[in-house]
Each structure stands twice: as structure tokens, then as C-alpha cells.
Design a protein around this nucleic acid. Structure first.
Length: 950
RNA sequence: GCCCGGUUAGCUCAGCGGUAGAGCGCCUGCCUUACAAGCAGGAUGUCGCUGGUUCGAACCCGGCACCGGGCACCA
């Protein structure tokens, strides 16, 4: 049922309307752009949510903002591409599947890689569409035909190509380093996937005896050093104790040897600047294979690395009698043993930070292992240069302050561990020449990086010679997968057709226009995308990975987005970040069901006025209601009804059939609303274009409700219904009112469209009678009518409104029933104001239930008893003898007097200050004098009226 | 430790040099033929504290307090 047919429904029902338009848009391919189409390109690739995910408020918020921007751009005439997709969420998906397997008593190894991946794809096919379907319910104007998935053929090809090129440039290497090991997922994770958490633990103090026969031991009288640790189980892997080189207490012991308790290993005392002499005893046990700081110390002093833990988090053979114990059980056991053997000095409660795996939710173990890394510094350096380019920041952050966060992260950046011991993901395009190492992949097995196995074989043959029958060349692809963010880092160009440099989409829409995202993924995503682009979309780096110096091109050509618009997070009513783990999420779908997608979108955008600020969404969990969203729903309903009013009053005509109003026929109210319309048009376009989305929403809300509905529509009701046998003039007037109303509404709907796409589409069709497949979404932003702008008119209209308000207030104060009419007198000494009021007599009569309206000069002012109010230079009188509540009236006048007196006091005080007149700008002083004169006149008038009452 | 926000009406937030605004909520009166998801009217704040700059500060500068966030992390 269209708006036209449903003209009698009193309230807007979003459910049916929204799904109908979503379907129509998609069926018609409304948002499927042609790269060859005209218009300045405008592209946004949306931050791909996890396929595992379901829609949460953060997605809804991000979507509302992006869609508002791109819908505006479409109206503004850009050739807009908004490209959706999902990422494959390596760890998350694998965790889900392994859980399912475990429930069935299986492990993935039982299935084998191939079968496991089949299962994974089946799972993806089944539940991967959830979030995408939910995004559709928001009315997202993305090109679904271009929807991408990080594991699809195109993205996968991009990953292989990117890996190869980075490797060729020396930006990817393989090596044995201490990495963050997540025992829960059985994989390495990157630094970013580790979250430090404050934990209540203990600090154990242990005695490490100096080795017997030590000369220093004898001379100093010391028999041991005391060390403290939060992780006793690691002492099994200690290979030194470090002290500060300038610590006088221990200087003479450096170079001596200690006997490691429980193990008996002889370990040296080394001097290292890392040690803080002030902290604890000033002695630190060094476990290079299990702590990043210790690893660094170990490298400086050439200490052996002793790994005492296996990858599943249990102690290994090197842990001696503790082998096989889980790391936390081992901790207890080691402490018990130390105590039993007299090495435990004391235990203190200790609050400290422990690294946790984001996904696995268990403490991460720093573990020595061979992994693939991206050498980040050359890439980061290039991004820093782009950000600080003399020609302007690339990308430009909105709000600007986020640029600092981004730059800080790109400074002192550590290499990025990209290999994951997982199956679900992009398999690393490296092939080990296992025939060289007896069929096994070891840390020293040679490998080749290639696009596919054929290329790998060719490369291997070149390097290792052709295989013979006796010694066939056997290759085995690296079993590991890549970090999901590796593929996400390619998203802005892999989705546009890269590595095909001639891809039409890439040519047309790269670099993209803006990236809209929360600040929580600046590092995960923004920085990695810019780094990847630096290596792959520019003109390359030198072979050793250092900037080749030859690049003088503009970073704007390769940085993947011109702007980065950073928005806040959605917080709950208690100001906590909404998240699944905290269980405080609000389901956007519930709100959509209750209030409509447009209402939710409008509420979210309306709240973001302070860009980059978090927003708080009120929510009542017992009833699943939100006052904020409800207010937006009410606004939608208001728009529905004002359009309904128009449909009932346009005499079956449309904006097109009515045509533009004749300037000569315009009345005061017409010219006023057209001036306002033009002003709002200009403001709103500026706001949309500069990410002032909240302001745009608020401005439109106020214009639509407080000006169009409250005043303009009320003012033209009389003209729209000229009654029986109207005069020719009345008919002209009616037509003019219809023309203006139709124009205002049509443009209002256009301007609101980015915020409330379904409702505006629906109402626009109702208003214009356009066929279904002609979309408001694809119309043009209304042309700004500069000639209509009229400051003087707007301010005198404000005076008229104020005059009407004073009358209404007086009526209310005096207790007049709305149905009672009363005579109104305006007394003013200002001819222009008098003229305005005289011209608007009919309007005032209609809006104040006036019996008659008289505009009098100051001299003519009535002396009879009357309700009296004062506003500026205007006296308003309601001479209704007998009906007057005198006390209320006196109170009202007293209030006027008090208000005027307060203003007089303030203004006079200011003017009395000689410095003010001297130093303040003349126009400010003049304004101050004028205000004072007005306030004095006002006080005088009010006092006179008060005296007249007695 | 380093860095970034915030503190304005009961709630959520605008305002960012000329003496305070909106929405919601609240109070009063209205089913006035678009809308009770509505209409009309009304009340409401030493703009966190404290110095300073200025003729003038919610707004600029310094200090303090509290709230929130990010990065780093000392065993």
C-alpha cells in the first residue's frame, strides 16, 4: 500500500514499508554503479564484519553513518560505490568448529585438513549470511552485487600476490623469535591481539645461591642473591641473573656464577641497563625463552635460550621433574619445591598486568617459535611521511586528533607476526623443499615463496636442481595460515580488482574517498591498510625493504582513502562499551522491530553531534524500549502526517503538476518558509559534506517540526481551504500555498533521505506519484535558491511569531479556554513592526483565536483594563473586561518587570565601566546601548500597565 | 609512566570570547477536521573547583579534582 493509497492511516507503520523499499532497491540494482558512469567518483569500502558475527549496535552505528554519507553523495551527483563484505575471522570460526567437533568427541586432526575445511565452508554457507541479512534491514545502500569475502577467489589471489611481492621486496621474512602464543587456540597471535589485564597475583622472592668456591662469594660474605618473580615456573628456564651495571651492591659480583635451584644449572650474573636498581632487590632472574625483556637481555649477553614449556601450555622435558604439568600447576609445584628446599624467602600479594589472548581468553605465553613476519618499519616510515606530507595529511583524520594516535603507533612499531597455526584462512604461499630434509619441515628446511605450486616447483628446481629418480624434489606447502588482518589490510584494493591493475573498479574508485570506522581499530585496520598500500599500490620499495628514494609521487595516489572519519563507540545506559562479552549489548533488531530502521538510524546519527565522541543510548531492559529511538520514531510519524496533510490538501496534484509558485503571489509566510528552506538546504549540504552528520540531523528535525509543521502548515490551513465559492484571488492564493507546501515537502524529503531513507522514499512516492522504480535515492539534491534567502524577512517573521506567543501566553495566564475568543491589541511605536502586524492580521487571528486584531500606535494605546504583556518594543493587550484574572495578570507583569530590571542592571553595569566603552568594539557597545534602551522601555511599559490595573 | 577525551537543566548532549540552548522527562490546559507517537503554554542551571589573561570567560591559559579511553609496562 503506497502512501497515497494509505492516506487515511494515522500512524506510520515502518515494518512493511522498509522491507518493501529494501527489496525494490536491490531488485533494481539501484546502488550498483557503473564505473563508466559520469559523476565524480566517491567510494567507500565498509569495514567487513566477521562472518561469525551478528549485528550489534556498533555495526548499526557505523552503518548509519556510512550510509548517510554515501546517500548524500549520491544525491549530490557523485558516482558512488559502497562496497560490502565480511572477513573470515580465522580464529573465531576455527574455535566454533573445534567446539562442535569436541562435542562430537572429535578433533580436527581426526578429520584432516581437507574435510575440516569442507565443514568450515559448509558452516560459512549456513550462518555466514546472518550479518549480511541484518545489514540489509538497516537499509544499507551498498552494492550487494559487489559483495566480497576475504576468503573468496579474488581476495585470496590478492593475498597470494601481496605475500609474494612483499617477500620479494624483503618485507616478509621467516625466523625464530619470541612470539605471543595462545595455548587455547594453539597458534601464535600478533601483539595487537594481546590485551593486558590487571590481575591479582603474587610476587615470590627466591634465594639463588652463589656457586661454591666463588672468590667473590667468600670476600663479600654473600652466599646468595635474592630475585623476585610473578612466574616461578619459568625459573626452570633461567639462564642468568641480571643487575644494573651501576649498582654498587652487586658490581663486584658481575661475571660470577649462581647455582639455579631445583635445576642445578650454573648461571652467570650479568650487568644490564634494563634492570632498575631501585625496584625490589635490584636482581632480576633472566628467562630468555619465556619473556620478551629477558629475550632482549639474552641477546645482549649471548645467553642460551631454554624453552621449558610445550605449545599446549604444559611443561616439557627441559622442565625435568615438572615435565607434563600444566603451566599453572607447575607454578604451584615449583613454589612448593623451592619452599621445601629452603629457597623461598617470602610471598607478597602483587597486582600486575598479564597479557591475555583476545580470542582465547587465556594468558598468552611468550614462546620461542619460527614464524613469518612483516617487516613493518619501512612501511610505517612511508605512512608517516604520507601523514606529514607538505601537501597535506594522507589520510586526513576527522576529528584531526586521531592522526596523533595513528602516528604514534607507526612510530617504534614492532614487526608483525602474520603466521597462524590454523587451517581456516589463507594458506601461506610458501613451499618447503622437504626432500632436502628427509621429508620433514624443520626450522632449517629450505623453502620457496611462489604464486602456486607450479611456480614453486620451478623456483625450487632452479635453486636446488632438478630432482632425480633417486632424489625426487618433494615440495610441501607451509601448513600455516595467515592472520585474518593480512587479508583485511588489502581490503580497499583487493575488493576493487587488484592485483589486476587494469580493473575498471580499481581505476575508477581507488583511492577510496573515506573510511568510516571506530577508533578501536585504528591500529588493527587503518594502519595496516595504509602500510599494505604503501608496499603494493605505490611504486615499490627497494629490494632490501628500505624506501627506494625514487618515489616522489603524491601519497594521495596510493594511500587507500582520502579521509578517515573516526567515530565513537556506542555505550550502554551505564556508560560501558557495549560488547558481547559484557553481555550489555542492545539488540538493534529489537529496536528496528519496535521503532523502524529509520528511527534507529536517525537516533544514532542525531547523537553524534560531537564527532568522534562516544554516544550513549538510553535503554530500558525490562521493556526493551528506548526513549531516544522513540523520539525519532515520533519524528518519522510527524513527517508521515505532514505529508498526509499535504496529500489531503493538494487537490490531487503533485509538485510537478503544481509547478513553481509565482513570485508575485507569494505571501509573507511563503517567502519566510522558502527563505528558511534555502538556508537549511545550504547548511545541511555543508554538514553532510563535512561529517557534521549529527548537526545535519538536528537541523532538519528542527526545521521540519518547529518551522514547517508548527508554523508554516498552521499558517496556510486557512488559504488551503478557501470555503464555498472562493474568489479568484482566493484560488490563486490556494494554489500558491499548495505550490509552496509541495516544494518545501519535496525538498525536505530529499534532504532527510540520507538519514531516513525508507520513510522519505515512501513519502516522496506518495507526494510525487512517481513509479516504484523511480527512486528518491537516485534523485538530485535540491538546487539552492539563493534568491529566496532573506535575513530581514526571517527576523521580522521571528517577531511575528513572538507576538503570537505573547498573546497565547496571556490567554493561558488569564485562564481563557482555548475555545474562547478574545480581542487583541498590539501597541508599538515602531512603524515597520506595526506594518508587519497589520499585514499579518488574518494569520494572527487564526493562530490566537482573536476576536479582532488592532494595531495601535503608542499614543492610541488603550487605557482600559486588559491582559497586558510586553515583548521588546511591543505591548500586547487583551482588553477583556470581567474575564480577567487580575492576580495572575499582576504576576505576569511583575515577572516582565523583574526580567527587564535584571537586564537593565547588567547592561547598565557594563556601560558604566569606562574601560568597556574604550576597549570593546563599537558595534558591541552600540548593541549594548540599544538593548539597554529597549529593556528600559519595556520596564516602563510594564510598570504603566501594572499601574493601570489599579 | 606517556598520550587523548570528558565534567553545562532531572537524563542525554549542543554551544567554545559579548553574559546560557535543544531533545527527552516534568507541571498546566486541550481529542482545535495531518498527527494524543499530538497541540498550546510553563518551570528548571553559582556552565566540576581554583588562579590568571581580558573592558568582558561556560568558552582562552595554568593548577587541582573526579570520570572515561588508548599506548607502554619493572622482574
Amino acid at each position: 500500500m503506497s502512501a497515497r493509497e494509505a492516506a487515511l492511516a494515522k500512524t506510520y507503520d515502518p515494518a512493511g514499508t522498509e522491507s518493501r523499499w529494501q527489496q525494490a532497491w536491490e531488485t533494481c540494482g539501484a546502488f550498483h554503479p557503473d564505473p563508466a558512469a559520469p559523476g565524480e567518483p566517491f567510494a567507500v569500502v565498509i569495514p567487513p564484519p566477521n562472518v561469525t558475527g551478528s549485528l550489534h549496535m556498533g555495526h548499526a552505528f557505523n552503518t548509519a553513518l556510512i550510509d548517510t554519507i554515501v546517500r548524500y553523495r549520491r544525491l549530490a551527483g557523485n558516482n558512488v560505490l559502497c562496497l560490502p563484505g565480511t572477513d573470515h575471522a580465522s580464529i573465531a570460526v576455527q574455535t566454533i568448529l573445534e567446539k562442535q567437533l569436541k562435542a562430537a568427541g572429535q578433533r580436527k586432526e581426526d578429520l584432516g585438513r581437507e574435510a575440516f575445511l569442507e565443514k568450515a565452508w559448509a558452516w560459512k554457507a549456513e550462518s555466514g549470511g546472518t550479518i549480511v541479512g541484518q545489514l540489509r534491514r538497516l537499509g544499507y545502500s551498498v552494492d550487494w552485487q559487489r559483495e566480497r569475502f576475504t576468503l573468496d577467489a579474488g581476495c585470496s589471489a590478492a593475498v597470494v600476490e601481496a605475500f609474494n611481492r612483499l617477500h620479494e621486496q624483503g618485507l616478509i621474512y621467516r625466523g625464530e623469535y619470541l612470539v605471543n602464543w595462545c595455548p587455547a587456540s594453539g597458534s601464535a597471535v600478533s601483539d595487537l591481539e594481546v590485551e593486558m589485564k590487571e590481575v591479582d597475583g603474587h610476587l615470590w622472592h627466591f634465594r639463588y645461591p652463589l656457586s661454591g668456591g666463588s672468590a667473590a662469594a667468600a670476600s663479600s660474605g654473600r652466599t646468595h642473591l635474592e630475585v623476585a618473580t610473578t612466574r616461578p615456573e619459568t625459573l626452570l628456564g633461567d639462564t642468568a641473573v641480571a643487575v644494573n651495571p651501576r649498582d654498587p651492591r652487586y658490581a663486584h659480583l658481575v661475571g660470577q656464577t649462581l647455582t639455579l635451584p631445583l635445576v642445578g644449572r650454573q648461571i652467570p650474573i650479568v650487568a644490564d641497563d634494563h634492570v632498575d636498581a631501585e625496584f625490589g632487590t635490584g636482581c632480576v632472574k633472566v628467562t630468555p625463552a619465556h619473556d620478551p625483556n629477558d629475550f632482549a637481555i639474552g641477546q645482549r649477553h649471548d645467553l642460551p635460550l631454554i624453552t621449558v614449556m610445550a605449545k599446549d601450555g604444559t611443561m616439557n622435558e627441559a622442565a625435568g621433574r615438572f615435565a607434563g604439568l600444566d603451566r599453572f600447576d607447575a607454578r604451584q609445584a615449583v613454589v612448593a619445591a623451592m619452599e621445601a628446599e629452603g629457597y623461598l624467602v617470602k610471598v607478597e600479594p602483587y597486582r600486575h598486568s598479564v597479557p591475555f589472548s583476545d580470542r582465547g581468553k587465556v594468558p598468552v605465553e611468550p614462546l620461542l617459535s619460527t614464524q613469518w613476519f612483516v617487516k613493518t618499519e619501512p612501511l610505517a616510515a612511508r605512512c608517516r611521511e604520507a601523514l606529514d606530507a607538505a601537501t597535506g595529511a594522507n589520510p586526513r583524520f576527522v576529528p584531526e586528533r586521531w592522526a596523533k594516535v595513528y602516528r604514534d603507533w607507526l612510530t617504534d612499531i614492532r614487526d608483525w607476526c602474520i603466521s597462524r597455526q590454523l587451517w581456516w584462512g589463507h594458506r601461506i604461499p610458501a613451499w618447503f623443499v622437504v626432500s632436502e630434509t628427509g621429508g620433514l619441515i624443520t626450522d632449517s628446511t629450505p623453502y620457496v615463496v611462489a604464486r602456486d605450486e607450479l611456480e614453486a616447483r620451478a623456483k625450487a628446481e632452479q635453486q636446488f636442481g632438478c630432482g632425480t629418480h633417486a632424489h625426487p624434489l618433494v615440495l610441501e606447502q607451509d601448513p600455516d595460515a595467515l592472520d585474518t588482518w593480512f587479508s583485511s589490510g588489502l581490503w580497499p584494493f583487493s575488493t576493487l580488482g587488484w592485483p589486476d591493475a587494469d580493473a575498471a573498479d580499481l581505476e575508477r574508485w581507488y583511492p577510496t574517498s573515506v573510511l568510516v570506522t571506530g577508533f578501536d581499530i585504528i591500529f588493527f585496520w587503518v594502519a595496516r591498510m595504509t602500510m599494505m598500500a604503501g608496499a603494493l599500490m605505490g611504486d615499490g620499495l627497494a629490494g632490501d625493504g628500505s624506501p627506494d628514494g625514487s618515489r616522489d609521487g603524491n601519497p594521495a595516489a596510493w594511500i587507500p582513502f582520502r579521509d578517515v572519519y573516526i567515530h565513537g563507540l556506542v555505550r550502554d545506559e551505564n556508560n560501558r562499551k557495549m560488547s558481547k562479552s559484557a553481555g550489555n549489548g542492545i539488540d538493534p533488531l529489537l529496536l528496528i522491530e519496535r521503532y523502524g530502521a529509520d528511527a534507529l538510524r536517525f537516533a544514532l546519527v542525531r547523537e553524534v553531534a560531537g564527532a568522534g565522541q562516544d554516544i550513549r543510548l538510553d535503554y530500558d531492559r525490562t521493556s526493551d524500549t528506548s526513549a531516544t529511538v522513540e523520539a525519532s520514531r515520533n519524528f518519522a510519524n510527524k513527517l508521515w502526517n505532514v505529508t498526509r496533510f499535504a496529500l489531503m490538501n493538494l487537490g490531487g496534484e503533485t509538485p510537478a503538476s503544481l509547478g513553481q509558485p509565482e513570485p508575485a503571489h507569494l505571501q509573507l509566510a511563503d517567502r519566510w518558509i522558502l527563505s528558511r528552506l534555502a538556508r537549511v538546504n545550504r547548511e545541511t549540504a555543508e554538514r553532510y559534506a563535512s561529517y557534521g552528520l549529527g548537526e545535519a540531523a538536528k537541523g532538519l528535525y528542527e526545521f521540519a517540526w518547529n518551522e514547517v509543521c508548527d508554523w508554516y502548515v498552521e499558517l496556510i490551513k486557512r488559504r488551503l481551504n478557501p470555503g464555498e465559492n472562493p474568489s479568484p484571488d482566493a484560488l490563486v492564493d490556494q494554489r500558491t500555498a499548495r505550490q509552496v507546501l509541495a516544494k518545501v515537502l519535496q525538498e525536505l524529503l530529499l534532504m532527510l533521505h540520507p538519514l531516513m531513507p525508507h520513510l522519505s522514499e515512501e513519502l516522496w512516492h506518495g507526494l510525487t506519484g512517481q513509479p516504484v522504480e523511480t527512486f528518491l535515492s537516485l534523485q538530485r539534491w535540491p538546487v539552492l535558491d539563493v534568491a529566496a534567502l532573506d535575513d530581514v524577512l526571517e527576523s521580522s517573521f521571528a517577531e511575528l511569531i513572538e507576538a503570537i506567543r505573547v498573546v497565547r501566553n496571556l490567554r493561558a495566564v488569564a485562564g481563557l479556554k482555548p475555545s474562547q475568543s478574545a480581542p487583541v491589541q498590539f501597541v508599538t511605536g515602531r512603524p515597520t513592526l506595526a506594518a508587519l502586524l497589520t499585514a499579518a492580521t488574518a494569520d494572527i487571528t487564526a493562530l490566537t483565536r482573536a476576536e479582532r486584531v488592532d494595531v495601535l500606535s503608542a499614543q492610541q494605546g488603550s487605557r482600559q483594563r486588559a491582559l497586558a504583556g510586553v515583548s521588546g518594543e511591543l505591548q500586547v493587550l487583551l482588553p477583556i473586561e470581567g474575564l480577567v484574572d487580575l492576580d495572575a495578570l499582576r504576576a505576569r507583569l511583575d515577572k516582565d518587570i523583574a526580567k527587564a530590571d535584571k537586564e537593565i542592571k547588567g547592561l547598565a553595569g557594563r556601560l558604566a565601566n569606562p574601560n568597556f566603552a574604550d576597549k570593546a568594539p563599537p558595534e558591541v557597545v552600540a548593541e549594548c546601548r540599544a538593548n539597554l534602551a529597549e529593556a528600559e522601555a519595556q520596564a516602563l511599559l510594564a510598570r504603566q500597565r501594572l499601574a493601570d490595573l489599579d
